[in-house]
Amino acid sequence: MTPGEIREEIIDILESIAPDEDLSELQDAPNFRDQLELDSMDFLDIVMELRKRYRIQIPEEEYEQLASMQSTVAYLEPIMKDMAKAS
């Protein structure tokens, strides 16, 4: 998957986790929490969805890598570069 495809996947996950939010204006650099109403259970949902869709196991000490879109894509790029986008 390309960084662009990974971003699309994260947007898809966020749409299901935060269905009341408008994600069209989401910026990549600032933290998700500064732009969206997300709490710790929501971040666990991101981890869970990546686990379900791509069998990716993110260690708890690395959850902080999911703080923003930019850091999330950077963190996932080496892990997902050889994966195909889930249908």
Binding site: S16, I17, A18, P19, D20, E37, M41
Partner: peptide, 8 residues
């Protein structure tokens, strides 16, 4: 309820 509240 918001959609998120229903989902959660």
């Amino acid at each position: 309820q918001k959609r998120k509240d229903v989902r959660r």
